[in-house]
Write a protein that binds this DNA or RNA. Structure first.
Lengths: 245, 245
DNA sequence: TTCTTTTTTTGACCAACGGTCAAATATTTT
DNA sequence: AAAATATTTGACCGTTGGTCAAAAAAAGAA
């Protein structure tokens, strides 16, 4: 998020440009090698600064990686917002968010890897309070956008109110999405489940959960292929490579 | 799995006893502190052997931790088997497996933590081929048990065959379960979703997916509380602490 | 029992890496 | 041009996973 350039001094701007340079290279290393298989020395070399300079921006390797993840998460929230504005029924809009999730997984493949590490307390503890808050903030944005659609669906009686609360419904969608992404990463599961297109597998599971929530119109009663094409055309004008009709 | 004691020499038996001692202490450290916050030296001290001896059993710290995880996973598969033998409809039996998952999460809290680490290639690579295979084997057992019930449900027309394949249905259940466990670990999500009982949240999500798969009798049409009590009484005779009616 | 051989255990040692900070370098001010 | 301030650097440190030659223990031979 480029803060307003007018109130910044040249120094501050240079500092920010360098931070983005570091983040870019760190993301590349994360994608290419994961977390362990590179060190701060190598990153310093890549950005053509010394190790000490890196530590002027980040308190630890974990802090840096969390910053990369938060950057990605901000993108996801932005995509969520755009998807939520899709013109259609509440279920169609939640579907657009499902697409945003897949697009996110495709464009920010390092994210889920970092997300897994975030579950371990020791990782989280090594990051700075500032970055932890930034990450929580973007996470909360994503939750709020989806939850808002669920609440609206219940208000419009497109989803029954008596079975589950809006929070339970939102939680179910979030859980199945994360779980599906995690499981599709596992080669063994891919074989056992016969998965050839991971993104499609994720979306099928989202359909199952929405149907389980009785979110009308049900997937099993309704053909969403027209909606899907509109979502791709209107929300993701750039090519979406993972979609198979 | 204690191999047959008769064909083993005394040495071999002692070796095995020591391995179990190491695994026990490693599991305790994993639960108490996670993966990072203890080192091999401390573990060696705890088991009253030297570091070098640990490396006669395990090729690396990761190899050791994978062994702990596989031990737990074997327990889960055993619980799955027991749950699958529950007398009832296919959906009731899948419900019993859902309970087994919760019981597992409660009794082996270190497992999900390790499972997350297994997603990173570098971790997996540091473990020995032998232990990787053992882990895959137990994972496959769990899959097979659940998948078998799904196949049977379709054969008995308790779940429609035309919407999803048996593998897709199994995958959906596995995904939502893993995802729910992962998400309930996250304090922020707990607050946002208003979760007070994580295990109940997991089971709700399983109900939603089963309903989405149109697995009869549907949760929304049927009261499963009697079934739940039977499952607890018959499959988990020891106290189940997390269940709230 | 005593000496020799084999097996097992040990902990000093190594390399790798995240992180620090005094010194060097660059920039700004006077 | 010199002094003052700010920034960058990389040698250095502590920790830790992992190794291996030497020590200790066990087994075997006499």
């Amino acid at each position: 998020m480029p803060a307003d350039l007018t109130t910044q001094t040249r120094k501050e701007r240079e500092f920010q440009v360098r931070e983005e340079l570091i983040l870019t290279h760190a993301r590349r290393l994360l994608i290419e090698r994961g977390f362990q298989a590179w060190n701060m020395e190598q990153l310093a070399e890549a950005v053509e600064y010394s190790k000490g300079t890196l530590y002027q921006h980040f308190t630890s390797k974990e802090d840096l990686v969390l910053a990369v993840a938060t950057d990605s998460l901000r993108n996801r929230a932005d995509w969520f917002e755009k998807a939520a504005r899709f013109q259609g029924s509440t279920r169609e809009r939640s579907r657009a968010i499902g697409f945003a999730c897949c697009e996110f997984a495709e464009k920010c493949p390092e994210y889920f890897h970092v997300e897994m590490m975030l579950k371990s307390a020791s990782f989280w503890e090594k990051a700075s309070e500032e970055r932890r808050q930034a990450h929580s903030f973007q996470g909360a944005r994503c939750w709020r956008i989806l939850n808002h659609i669920v609440v609206e669906a219940m208000a419009l009686n497109e989803m029954p109110r008596d079975s589950f609360t809006a929070e339970e419904a939102t939680f179910a969608l979030v859980s199945v999405t994360v779980g599906s992404h995690v499981m599709t990463q596992e080669p063994q599961i891919r074989v056992q489940a016969g998965i050839t297109n991971p993104m499609q597998a994720v979306r099928i599971n989202q359909d199952i959960v929405c149907d389980g929530l009785n979110w009308k119109p049900l997937f099993r009663d309704h053909d969403y292929s027209k909606t899907d094409q509109r979502i791709i055309a209107e929300v993701f004008p750039e090519a979406v490579n993972w979609y198979k009709a």
